[in-house]
Design a binder for these strands. Structure first.
Lengths: 197, 197
DNA sequence: ACGCCCAGTCAACGATTGGTGACTTTAAGA
DNA sequence: TCTTAAAGTCACCAATCGTTGACTGGGCGT
């Protein structure tokens, strides 16, 4: 997205970071398969070969990206009481997608990438191997209480489902403001119920 | 999956149907991108060129598959009262995936394909163009009542989210039987609440 | 029994993919 | 200023993709 015409200063560390950020941006707005090394390279203003050089393979880069983002852990910041409402607003009212750099939507990047990866067999292998320690376990611990694993998984599923639903419905464009409010309300209740219970 | 060594009788219509079924099977267990024309052809026991010949392009084949399957409409058969429970069991207890030919899981093929397509840009274009009339509208009508569009979308999102969650958690292998039961119960309640309300 | 039409095969195409090794260029230290 | 290690580029590879056009062979009508 951000192409800088000025020649980038020769700084391996900064370049590596820039690649990581560009990849993160790509991976959360397109699927694993749809993202090409050359796309990322073009975003950074660098040759694609450099990415292989720094990160090994595309799969390794993907893992590095998953490691670099917050995987929804930020969602657990803030009060427990309005978790449902906060998250529902984040999902319904467009602050989630597209993911802007360091913007409000940044919170859910890890989840978005998870979501985008559902299709690809290769990406799912990676995600499956790491999603427990990376996402479910922290969420489970944060939720706590009785049946925490079950509630955490339901909550995660709910969140992802809503994100997909939003995607499929083109941002709920066909719903009027009242319906959106109703949707946010219901979703907040459902989520909060899983946190509290 | 099903490879028949015996030479298939020369019957264009039957072959066309066989291709459609094999493609449906593939598309609901792998993503659009991961499914290759050659894979489908091998399943049927036919050359890949024949598929292009019969269906035009891969995208056209995908549309034909979406048209040919029931898109979850079967879910609306049976009583309204235990919809939540039926569906929850279907999702949690493995009758959904993998989709078997004409088996219990066949009901949700359309949804599964939807799910598998989330990643691919090309497949999503197709799905987005058609998912309203194909899926959301019938569901909305079946659900009926106040805020039907909102409730239908929430239900669809919930279902898809649970399916993804299951996928990510390798069929909830890490949950014991009691936890699975609890999960099914909670999910049934959530779904039924959306249908009834 | 012959011939024809069409179901199906085969080889190859152009494009695109991730990845590799040799090359060039830059910046920093002596 | 000269040297050198590293940063970055370039050309190319092997594999795979969907798709095409020329070809083959079997079954049906006559």
């Amino acid at each position: 997205m951000v192409i800088c015409d000025a020649p980038r200063p020769r700084n391996a560390n900064a370049t590596r970071q820039a690649i990581l950020e560009a990849a993160r941006e790509r991976f959360c707005s397109e699927s694993y398969d749809d993202v090409g090394m050359r796309d990322i390279a073009r975003d950074v203003g660098v040759d694609a070969a450099l990415i292989s050089r720094y990160f090994g393979s595309k799969e390794d880069l993907f893992v590095a990206v998953l490691d670099s983002c917050k995987n929804g852990r930020d969602l657990m910041d803030g009060s427990r009481e309005d978790f449902g409402e906060r998250l529902a607003r984040e999902i319904i009212y467009g602050e989630v997608m597209p993911c802007q750099d360091e913007g409000a939507g940044a919170k859910m990047r890890g989840l978005l990438i998870l979501l985008r990866s559902v299709g690809s067999t290769k990406a799912m292998d990676v995600v499956q191997r790491t999603s427990n320690s990376r996402f479910f376990d922290p969420l489970t611990q944060w939720i706590g209480g009785k049946n925490a694993p079950v509630r955490a998984r339901l909550a995660a599923g709910l969140i992802m489902g809503m994100a997909i639903g939003r995607e499929l419905s083109d941002g709920y464009a066909s719903l009027d403001e009242e319906q959106k409010t109703e949707m946010a309300r219901r979703m907040a209740v459902a989520l909060q119920g899983l946190v509290d219970d």
